[in-house]
Design a protein around this nucleic acid. Structure first.
Lengths: 175, 175
DNA sequence: TATAACATGTAACAAGTTACATGATTTC
DNA sequence: GAAATCATGTAACTTGTTACATGTTATA
């Protein structure tokens, strides 16, 4: 559902073709969720079948023709309804990477430390990416609620890193 | 992968039958991830086919017969290898419920507030569940790393609630 | 002239879910 | 005697991914 909301929300701002949509969602630079190519193209044709969008063929110069998707009234109604559903309800996130922490004490202290530091570095990279994409926006103060997901990701990564630091510190101390 | 790790980790502590495994994973009381019935039974038979577990039929009194799964040496090796993979790497979580926040400013302030309060109440319920299951463990201090996922969930829910409170406060102030 | 970027899709597969199906036993 | 719990599974479906397939046009 949240994928539909997101795609409709994007098309609502600007009509666009699939390839452009992809550029928005192939990285987690703006959203804590990603789409792959076939997902986007499939969703677009499903939305067309459902009457949520209409398609217009466009050709700029000699480039490959584009199918530009524009939201319809039915699409806008779907968006409004999805928005209310989604804002008012909480869908659990799953945290696959937390599972393994339950078995941490089975690893030799030193090995655990090395592995957790690896993990920490990976999260640090993601945080840097998010920071970068926030920096790229002009006047982030005026960006309104579009910034919330990014701020959320920032907070989340920082919390994860703090947790790891605590665990690593704990491992070192008891030695 | 993390599901396999978790299932192996459980069978490693105690051999058990599918129904008992289910009781561990149908709620998020101990892990930020859940399994449904067919998933558990399918995984168990896959693990059997892979030689990670052996099955023993057991009958207690006149109850339905149970298939008790016991981890093998190959299963233990798989567990050890999965554990190292998983601890050392970070798998992104997706946050479906954050997506809709990007469009918050499209809602009338008052409606947004009501919906966010609904959501807040739902998270509060989950937090209560987690707190309860931590309370049920005896001597949580000695529980070792098994407690980490629960503490993680606690932190996560609290952070989500704080974020919502901030947003709600922001909505009220600008009125 | 090779490679990256532009542009769109299909087919086969993977993972997990819902709904279906069955049957005994304990508890109310 | 009905309902909940114990116990195991299959079939069909949903969602999303990887791999396959194609062709043009800038760019290095």
């Amino acid at each position: 559902m949240e994928r539909k909301l997101l795609l409709l929300g994007l098309l609502r701002m600007h009509s666009m073709h699939g390839y452009l949509v992809l550029e928005h969602f192939e990285s987690r630079a703006a959203m804590p969720i990603t789409f792959k190519k076939p997902t986007v193209y499939n969703m677009l044709s499903k939305m067309k079948a459902d009457g949520w969008v209409v398609v217009r063929e466009e050709q700029e110069g000699k480039r490959p023709p584009r199918s530009v998707y524009e939201i319809t009234e039915a699409g806008e109604a779907a968006f409004q309804s999805l928005l209310r559903d989604e804002v008012g309800s909480y869908t659990e996130a799953e945290f696959p990477s937390v599972v393994s922490l339950a078995f941490l004490d089975l690893l030799p202290r030193h090995e655990a430390k090395v592995l957790l530091e690896q993990r920490h570095a990976q999260i640090e990279d993601r945080l840097r990416e998010v920071n970068a994409s926030i920096g790229e926006l002009d006047m982030p103060i005026h960006a309104g609620s579009a910034l919330l997901p990014l701020r959320y990701l920032q907070r989340h990564y920082m919390a994860e890193m703090e947790l790891l630091e605590d665990i690593i510190k704990g491992l070192s101390e008891i030695e």
